[in-house]
């Protein structure tokens, strides 16, 4: 947290606190150190959400074992409020895509994502979920779940260590804490113009149809032509 930073700044400085009633984050933190809780609805809301991110109990491949390890005694994901692995997507906030997404599995993953209520987040855990990883050249391997879903956090590794998953979770928490309730850059679940369901690809004769969702993913161009 930002305790150490705020300790060095004087609490009553800054013009903002004198005119309206909008103390800065540093000032709030300093007040909190003295036992006075000043907060905004946005902060309270994000604080609550970020500390109770419930992941979907959903494992795909090798990375899932490390995800389980992260929830076990040594790594103890409960320290971050995420030990409640929900078997049902209806109760989950976070989809950890932990492993290789095959083309046969991809429609089910997207269906699970569609069944999760907003606000929801997606972590791509491991090389496979990011890009296909070591199995990239396989005919049945989806080359990254971000072809169909919006991914919030990418955790590289094969498999990422449980510590890496915890770090990814903390990054996600920081991201949640920074979300705005109002304004043009408010997140997906607070906007009326975006849906939370993504199209599910169909099984085709040779490949998934379509092979990617153009709204989330465009093929990058090759940086090296030589």
């Amino acid at each position: 947290m930002s305790m150490s930073e705020s300790a060095s700044t004087p609490a009553t400085s800054g013009p903002a606190s004198q005119e309206g009633f909008s103390p800065t984050q540093q000032e709030r933190d300093e007040l909190r150190r003295h036992g006075i809780l000043l907060t905004s609805l946005e902060e309270l809301y994000n604080w609550g959400r970020s500390n109770s991110v419930w992941p979907l109990n959903f494992g795909l491949a090798c990375c899932a074992i490390e995800m389980i390890a992260a929830s076990m005694a040594r790594f103890d994901i409960a320290r971050f409020g995420s030990e409640v692995f929900r078997p049902s997507p209806r109760q989950a906030d976070l989809l950890i895509v932990s492993g290789t997404v095959t083309k046969k599995m991809a429609p089910q993953v997207i269906r699970l994502w569609n069944q999760m209520p907003e606000p929801k987040y997606c972590i791509a855990m491991g090389a496979c979920a990011i890009s296909g990883g070591p199995f990239k050249q396989g005919y049945n391997v989806l080359k990254g779940i971000d072809r169909y879903l919006p991914v919030d956090i990418y955790i590289p590794g094969c498999p990422p260590r449980p510590e890496a998953l915890l770090h990814g979770l903390m990054q996600l928490q920081a991201q949640i804490r920074g979300q705005k309730l109002t304004g043009p850059d408010r997140p997906r679940h607070l906007r009326a113009d975006t849906g939370c369901a993504y199209p599910v690809p169909e099984f085709g004769a040779h490949d998934l149809e379509p092979p990617a969702n153009p709204e989330v993913w465009q093929a990058p161009s090759l940086p090296r032509s030589g």
Binding site: A61, T102, K104, F135, G138
Partner: peptide, 14 residues
């Protein structure tokens, strides 16, 4: 089966 068919044998031949 097949939801984790990662083409191990094909990759092994390549």
């Amino acid at each position: 089966f097949g939801y984790l068919h990662r083409n191990h044998e094909k990759l092994g031949e390549q």
